[in-house]
Amino acid sequence: MTTHEHGPAEERSRTIHYQVPGKDKRALFAKSGLDQLRAVAAGDAPAPPISSHIGLEFLTVGEGDVVMTAVPDESHYNPIGSVHGGFFATVLDSVCGCAVHSTLPANVGYTTLEIKVSFLRPITADTGQVTAHGWVTRSGRSVAFADADIRDNDGRVLATASSTCLIVRPETS
């Protein structure tokens, strides 16, 4: 047990369970992005491993529009006793990326080029489940843009983001 200036620290632990995604990239991309995400949301395909770290789950998946929930807890805290900005950024990057992914045909992927996050209110373990909504604002052949926000159970906006994603198409010879 670690002793802090204000007495002994309470030690907690967390176990994370996840499935490793398939190594066959062709099989992973055989379906459209929308079909892939709907399969994960329905429990017919494993969730990405990152989901286990932050309690991230799909609520709705539509073309260019995705809603997810996440559950912050004390294991996400920074040194000042609130949820680390990386939690916000991870949730927002996930929901923006999935919104873009939901617009892609089979055999096409994406990667985040940049994301801008604005932190508007703190999150703590007492905040409870948060809801993130991401939507595509513009999509082209090689780049897509998405916006997102995170809200608490009272509908207050906690953070917003705008993201630019690179569309990755298979190489042709």
Rank of each mutant, 00 (worst) to 15 (best):
residue 101 H to L: 11
residue 15 T to C: 01
residue 83 V to W: 00
residue 173 S to K: 15
residue 48 P to N: 09
residue 125 A to F: 00
residue 52 S to G: 15
residue 58 F to N: 07
residue 111 T to K: 09
residue 125 A to K: 13
residue 58 F to Y: 15
residue 37 L to E: 06
residue 115 I to Y: 00
residue 37 L to N: 07
residue 169 R to N: 06
residue 75 S to T: 14
residue 125 A to I: 01
residue 25 K to M: 13
residue 169 R to G: 05
residue 45 A to W: 02
residue 5 E to H: 13
residue 152 D to E: 04
residue 61 V to L: 04
residue 34 L to F: 11
residue 130 V to R: 08
residue 169 R to K: 15
residue 169 R to M: 01
residue 162 S to I: 03
residue 132 A to Y: 06
residue 59 L to Y: 00
residue 166 L to G: 00
residue 133 H to I: 09
residue 2 T to V: 14
residue 162 S to R: 15
residue 43 G to W: 01
residue 43 G to F: 08
residue 57 E to Q: 12
residue 163 S to L: 12
residue 34 L to W: 04
residue 40 V to D: 00
residue 63 E to R: 14
residue 155 G to P: 04
residue 80 I to Q: 05
residue 158 L to P: 07
residue 152 D to G: 01
residue 149 D to R: 12
residue 67 V to M: 04
residue 136 V to L: 07
residue 77 Y to K: 04
residue 158 L to N: 06
residue 161 A to W: 04
residue 148 A to E: 01
residue 134 G to Y: 09
residue 74 E to V: 12
residue 72 P to I: 10
residue 22 G to I: 07
residue 148 A to G: 10
residue 31 K to W: 02
residue 110 Y to F: 15
residue 125 A to Q: 09
residue 118 S to M: 07
residue 48 P to K: 08
residue 21 P to S: 04
residue 137 T to K: 04
residue 13 S to N: 04
residue 167 I to A: 09
residue 111 T to L: 11
residue 70 A to S: 13
residue 102 S to M: 07
residue 48 P to Q: 10
residue 157 V to L: 04
residue 59 L to I: 15
residue 5 E to R: 12
residue 80 I to L: 11
residue 90 T to I: 03
residue 52 S to R: 04
residue 79 P to M: 10
residue 110 Y to A: 09
residue 83 V to G: 02
residue 79 P to K: 07
residue 89 A to R: 02
residue 3 T to D: 09
residue 157 V to P: 08
residue 91 V to I: 15
residue 106 A to E: 13
residue 84 H to V: 06
residue 87 F to E: 00
residue 60 T to W: 03
residue 109 G to D: 11
residue 6 H to K: 14
residue 12 R to T: 12
residue 151 R to V: 15
residue 85 G to F: 02
residue 118 S to I: 02
residue 84 H to R: 03
residue 131 T to N: 01
residue 86 G to T: 10
residue 53 H to D: 07
residue 43 G to N: 02
residue 79 P to V: 09
residue 135 W to A: 12
residue 107 N to K: 12
residue 116 K to N: 15
residue 60 T to H: 10
residue 15 T to N: 01
residue 154 D to I: 00
residue 117 V to E: 02
residue 125 A to H: 08
residue 89 A to W: 00
residue 75 S to R: 12
residue 118 S to D: 14
residue 156 R to H: 15
